[in-house]
């Protein structure tokens, strides 16, 4: 699934569950959009679903008026107008995606004046599949993009965790017992002394291995010339007791970190995998092209 929203909106609530989840966006002051999805083996009774929603909305605000949306791009829904001023307070639209077997719902609260053009753009900006990322799909990768980070991950890696903190975004992928963590660290001026090797050494603390400076990652999709920066790699093993190593339970750890000159962030990819089918940082294409929409 992908959706295009205005650049200035930010995800404030997220879920990484495939079966059922929500994504909520806000602008500076208000919540603007809620995208929710739930598994649905067959097409639900849409008319009944929306009549239930209308009944619930009527309870919230008496004498609300409802206007059905014209069916566009498979969306069905309505706008709720307030009883007094007649202003649109909410747009709710839903559609069934038979390929994903998901019921998709968009809820747009209008705490700001209703903008029909924006509403149409949001509905039209939703799509299923990676039609616009055919290049990534051709090399068996899937695109994940949010919070100013774009990651092309191997298709069989599952996004399991996203931890967005100010200037420290951490995205975790998993495939069985293999794991990959992609990080974007900002505010370099405040804490980074320019020694990337020392930083990665500290990150890989207690992990036995070798640090090495290398050429910039060829798959770093940083906006400007990635060649302007250098990368540092770490090859070793994850930290842990020795008996894990003896039993073959210790995973190989590979790191690659570089400074993106355009966004002044550190990008860091760390993989943990068993030697048989090693997962490498090069399997991920990372772009830290921050703040260019989602």
């Amino acid at each position: 699934m992908s959706i295009t929203v205005p650049e200035t909106w930010e995800i404030m609530r997220h879920s990484v569950q495939e079966a059922r989840g929500q994504l909520a966006w806000c602008d500076r002051r208000h919540q603007r959009l809620l995208l929710s999805w739930s598994t649905c083996a067959t097409r639900p009774d849409v008319q009944r679903l929306f009549s239930d929603y209308k009944a619930r909305d009527s309870e919230a605000e008496r004498k609300s008026r409802f206007h059905d949306l014209a069916q566009v791009d498979g969306w069905t829904g309505y706008r709720r107008r307030s009883s007094s001023a007649g202003a649109v307070r909410l747009t709710r639209a839903g559609r069934y995606e038979p390929v994903l077997k998901r019921w998709i719902e968009l809820t747009i609260p209008w705490e700001v004046p209703h903008d029909g053009e924006l509403e149409a753009e949001l509905l039209a900006g939703f799509s299923v599949g990676n039609g616009t990322d055919s290049a990534a799909a051709s090399v068996g990768r899937e695109v994940w993009q949010a919070f100013g980070l774009r990651v092309e991950a191997p298709r069989d890696m599952k996004l399991v965790h996203v931890e967005p903190k100010p200037a420290d975004l951490r995205v975790t992928f998993r495939r069985g017992r293999d794991e990959a963590v992609v990080r974007r660290l900002g505010m370099l001026r405040a804490w980074f002394n320019g020694d990337l090797t020392a930083w990665l050494e500290k990150e890989a603390d207690k992990c036995p291995g070798i640090l090495d400076a290398c050429s910039p990652p060829g798959n770093a999709l940083c906006d400007t010339e990635p060649a302007a920066t250098s990368a540092v790699t770490f090859a070793g093993w994850e930290a842990g007791p020795r008996w894990r190593s003896l039993l073959g339970l210790r995973r190989e750890r590979l790191d690659r970190a570089w400074v993106c000159p355009s966004s002044q962030t550190i990008c860091h990819v760390m993989t943990l995998s068993f030697p048989g089918q090693p997962l490498r940082p090069e399997d991920f294409a990372v772009s830290c092209s921050a703040f260019k929409g989602h």
Partner: peptide, 10 residues
């Protein structure tokens, strides 16, 4: 610090 408004706000 080249942050987004929302990161900075938090």
């Amino acid at each position: 610090h080249r942050l987004s408004f929302h990161e900075s706000r938090l």
